[in-house]
């Protein structure tokens, strides 16, 4: 600590004044880091080793909560499965579709700005409202989507009433809100120098080749950004799942996301200790997955340094 203080002593008066001002400016955030980040993380960790019902003080129980997670909670398996299923399906499909949409929106056409605006509109609908709208669209017997499917004489699934179809339903619903993600890709596409694509065209590259050899590599950092954000978001999906399946994940725990399970333990059973242990687990998993993605990014994210070299 003393070493850290040394520069302070050697500073000029002006610099010291600037430093003081700097601390004042970031003071709120410093408090926030301590009170709303550091303290809660430590407390969550501590609570995960206790039994705590809020009304009574916490009781230290060692690893019991973690034992329960791994051996004694029948809802763990389905909730982990659901969250992984949802993430593995919604993230790649969402990425690919939003990328395709961005390519479409990147076309030169009159009034393209209007289309871009319209695509973004669904992202404005609050998740609760959007989910309720989709429960109407996906209604098993006479909802719009099933009426459409049946008009081709095809069998229509019961969607949110069928444990095998409720998660695909959730994923489809999530795709409705990819407008924002699409616009991020669009911004990335517009940053790609036209000269590069034209040069490739002159070299005789076709559309697919241009996409594969130029557009995608130059877009890879945007893809990485969207990928990481979506994975973190998908592991924590809550609102849509709760609106559809309540805190028990109807039907048949098929919409019981991990986050819903945490919420249920925290606020239905008031098992704050156990819910904390679940939170710690989710935290670790999200961190590991994020790190793995960043690791893998070395292999597939096009680094601009190489371009300049």
């Amino acid at each position: 600590m003393l070493a850290r203080n040394l520069p302070w002593l050697t500073m000029s008066k002006l610099k010291r004044r600037e430093a003081v001002a700097g601390y004042v400016f970031i003071l709120p955030w410093l408090i926030s880091l301590l009170v709303f980040t550091l303290y809660p993380i430590i407390t969550t960790l501590y609570l995960s080793f206790t039994n705590y019902t809020v009304v009574q003080p916490p009781v230290w129980v060692g690893l019991e909560n973690y034992q329960t997670i791994f051996f004694n909670d029948p809802s763990i398996k389905p909730s982990v499965y659901n969250s992984v299923y949802y993430t593995l399906l919604s993230v790649p499909v969402g990425l690919i579709l939003s990328l395709l949409l961005a390519l479409v929106l990147n076309m030169r056409a009159t009034g393209i700005g209007v289309y871009r605006t319209l695509f973004y509109l669904p992202s404005l609908v609050p998740p609760v409202a959007a989910t309720i709208v989709f429960t109407v669209l996906f209604e098993a017997r006479s909802g719009l989507i099933n009426s459409f499917i049946r008009s081709f004489g095809l069998p229509a699934p019961a969607w949110f009433a069928d444990p095998n179809w409720s998660k695909p339903g959730l994923v489809i619903m999530s795709l409705w809100g990819i407008g924002a993600q699409t616009l991020i890709f669009l911004a990335g596409l517009q940053d790609i120098p036209k000269s590069l694509l034209e040069a490739a065209e002159i070299d005789g590259a076709n559309g697919a080749q241009k996409l594969w050899y130029i557009t995608l590599p130059l877009l890879s950092n945007v893809i990485l950004f969207n990928l990481v954000m979506n994975v973190i978001g998908s592991f924590q999906v809550f609102t849509q799942a709760v609106v559809i399946g309540g805190t028990t994940g109807n039907p048949m725990e098929s919409t019981l996301m991990f986050m819903v399970h945490i919420y249920r333990n925290a606020f239905r059973y008031f098992k704050m200790g156990y819910a904390s242990a679940l939170s710690v687990l989710l935290f670790v998993v999200v961190m590991v997955v994020t790190l793995l993605i960043f690791r893998s990014a070395r292999l597939w994210v096009f680094a601009e340094k190489d371009e300049n070299a």
Partner: peptide, 28 residues
């Protein structure tokens, strides 16, 4: 503004972006 610890605190801030809200909501 330049002040000692700025980079460290800013790194913390960026790291904060990656922390899922779930790990803090119960204590808060």
């Amino acid at each position: 503004l330049r002040f000692p610890g700025r980079n460290f605190l800013f790194t913390l801030t960026v790291a904060n972006l990656m922390i899922p809200g779930v790990v803090t909501f119960i204590p808060i």
